[in-house]
């Protein structure tokens, strides 16, 4: 993030320990991170380095044992479950490795879902969902259910869904891991284009060097800690 810019999402001294049976696994320790408006940050690191844990904490999907997450200048630690749900709905977007679309909903309905949660009228939500699908190149497949879509198409629907409520930040956990290289490149290009044209920040946890190469900046995690840039 450029010096002096105000972060929209930040983690301060984040730590998270999981209990697996009798073992305590320290997944994240002392992580400080800031995401600015329009940022495109690639989080890289080997498996088990804490990338997904950090994405979960920044996405308000999990609660840190240590430190705090601040979204739009507001610490979220004191918020209850419902307020956290509202913040995720209104200010964050998510793209998962396995696409995670609702199988009984069409592509347009999947994209419209977060808008409906926000109280948008169904007709308006559908119109906007179709426009988003057009933008990600899936206008013609708006009425298809996920099982009729290819992996790349599903991930495009997931990206459109992540943008449904015009979030400040989209958190993507290994979005290209289940895709072939051509499709992965297309998805990366799409995220970059959306980042540039809409100013929405992307935080992408990835193993894919092409994603790292295409990001504005990157951070490396190892053993739950951020590795200082060389």
């Amino acid at each position: 993030m450029p010096p002096g810019a105000v972060p929209i999402l930040s983690g301060r001294n984040l730590g998270r320990t999981y209990t697996l049976g009798a073992t305590q696994v320290r997944a994240l320790a002392g992580v400080d991170i800031e995401i600015g408006a329009g940022d495109f940050l690639a989080l890289q690191g080997p498996s088990g380095s804490g990338k997904t844990t950090l994405i979960n904490l920044l996405g308000l999907l999990d609660v840190p044992d240590e430190g705090e997450v601040v979204l739009d200048g507001r610490p979220v630690a004191a918020l209850d479950e419902e307020s956290l749900a509202d913040m995720r709905r209104d200010r964050l977007g998510f793209v998962f490795q396995t696409f995670s679309l609702v199988p009984v909903l069409t592509a347009a309905e999947n994209v419209a879902w977060p808008m409906s949660l926000r109280g948008l009228r169904e007709s308006e939500a559908r119109t906007r969902a179709r426009a988003l699908l057009e933008r990600v190149g899936l206008g013609a497949r708006a009425d298809a259910r996920p099982d009729r879509l290819s992996g790349g198409e599903r991930q495009r629907v997931a990206i459109a869904r992540a943008l449904a409520n015009e979030p400040r930040v989209v958190l993507a956990d290994e979005p290209t891991a289940n895709l072939d290289s051509v499709t992965a490149s297309e998805i990366l290009d799409l995220m970059r284009a959306l980042n540039e044209e809409r100013g929405v920040a992307f935080v992408v946890a990835t193993h894919d060097p092409r994603v790292v190469a295409g990001a504005r900046r990157s951070a490396t995690l190892r053993d739950g800690r951020l590795v200082p840039a060389a």
Partner: peptide
């Protein structure tokens, strides 16, 4: 369960 997790991640109330 996973679908439930996704819906909640998107902000759907429990």
């Amino acid at each position: 369960v996973r679908e439930i997790g996704t819906l909640r991640a998107l902000g759907t109330r429990a």
